[in-house]
């Protein structure tokens, strides 16, 4: 069962990557990367059970922490750039 779930998660990660490559706007790409990160956490937890190695749960938690901070940092960066652009436009 774990193998089926991990394959489903892997397929979704590929689909998210396709969306990240296609995505017409920056936000589509960030959304796809966010989905990819969440799926990584899920995949790590499933792998912990698939191979019977509970250490992977700690990795999953660490990845979840990094993922959130990373997404917020990327968004902050884009918002900053957008604000700068606006300032340049108004000058």
């Amino acid at each position: 069962m774990y193998i089926v779930v991990s394959i489903a998660i892997l397929v979704t990660m590929v689909l998210a990557l396709v969306r990240a490559l296609l995505g017409p706007t920056v936000y589509d790409r960030v959304l796809a990367v966010n989905v990819f990160g969440t799926k990584t956490v899920l995949l790590l937890s499933v792998i912990a059970f698939l191979y019977g190695r509970p250490d992977f749960l700690d990795l999953a938690l660490a990845y979840a922490l990094i993922n959130v901070v990373g997404i917020l940092a990327v968004l902050e960066f884009f918002q900053d750039r957008f604000r700068k652009q606006e300032r340049v436009d108004s000058d």
Partner: peptide, 9 residues
């Protein structure tokens, strides 16, 4: 998970 991935596309 799969349905969400398909929906994203």
């Amino acid at each position: 998970v799969l349905i969400g991935g398909i929906g994203g596309l």
